[in-house]
């Protein structure tokens, strides 16, 4: 259930001495049915955790790839309720893979925090990442999520210094998401050497597993991150794959899933195959 599902997954991975591969896709991209089909295939492709983006008209921290994914989802009339329906449908066939919803605050303000937390938990989501809700503004949302036993996953970044880190990790659970580059998603590449000390710092301050994302595009980079972090998050690279197959007549789902499998294998064997 909810928070516990995330904790169980990280405990199992730690016992195997491997990092989690976290796959990010956007609900409703390119359409509701295909996104669900991709989501259902991700665990078998090696995703240990799924981040499911919910679309927003003004995704200020996203690079062009996820902006376009958001626009495709909205063009297909994806709504917040539709995102929760996707989670519910996924849960019918998967009781174990944690699902983290990721997006922006306004659709949640609009939905109502209490109602959203209740409906998200009921649908089978485990946690939430809200890009534009810093700790200073998060209390009303965290209160609602706590009541539904959902985690608010916090973001730490290269600009989060030691003085600020305790503020960032307060009232968080599940894991901490370390944004490895100052920038938008999917543009710059993370430097694995710089990531290692940052991960250690965040882990020490939070006592939680640390996932790294925002700059991981290739299996090599994913493997390098998986050696030092508890999880490697890949989003834009999967959506790039989706997008490039949309224009041709290839099967989008199998293209995205085989890309996910390639990245998942790089993460899975990163610590046994030292580069």
């Amino acid at each position: 259930m909810t928070k516990d599902r995330i904790d169980r997954r990280f405990a199992a991975l730690a016992a195997e001495d491997r990092a989690a591969f976290v796959a990010y896709i956007m609900a409703g991209d390119p359409d509701a049915a295909t996104a669900l089909e991709i989501m259902r295939g991700l665990p078998a492709a090696g995703a240990d955790i799924i981040e499911l983006g919910f679309p927003f008209s003004d995704p200020m921290a996203e690079g062009p790839t996820i902006q376009r994914a958001s626009q495709r989802a909205l063009a297909g009339k994806m709504t917040t309720k539709g995102v929760l329906a996707t989670v519910r449908a996924f849960r019918e066939g998967d009781e174990d893979t944690p699902v983290i919803l990721m997006g922006y605050l306004n659709p949640l303000v609009n939905y109502g925090f209490e109602a959203f937390a209740r409906d998200a938990a009921e649908a089978g989501a485990d946690g939430l990442i809200v890009v534009d809700c810093p700790p200073e503004e998060a209390d009303p949302l965290v209160d609602a999520l706590d009541a539904a036993n959902l985690s608010l996953i916090r973001l730490a970044t290269p600009t989060t210094d030691d003085a600020r880190l305790p503020v960032v990790v307060k009232r968080t659970s599940g894991f901490v998401y370390y944004v490895s580059v100052a920038g938008v998603t999917g543009v710059l590449e993370a430097d694995a050497d710089a990531v290692a000390p940052a991960v250690a710092r965040v882990r020490a301050a939070s006592g939680l597993p640390v996932a790294v994302g925002f700059g991981i595009k290739t299996p090599d980079r994913a493997a390098a991150v998986a050696r030092v972090a508890d999880a490697a998050v890949v989003g834009s690279a999967l959506i790039d794959e989706l997008e490039s197959n949309l224009s041709s007549n290839k099967n989008v789902t199998s293209a995205v899933l085989s890309k996910a499998e390639e990245l998942a294998n790089a993460v899975r064997f990163a610590r046994s195959n030292k580069a």
């Binding site: 605050l105 534009d132 810093p134 503004e137 916090r154 973001l155 600009t159 960032v168």
Partner: peptide, 12 residues
């Protein structure tokens, strides 16, 4: 009002 920005911008 308030300060609803990504964590990267919060220290700034």
């Amino acid at each position: 009002g308030g300060r609803y920005v990504a964590e990267t911008l919060m220290p700034l």
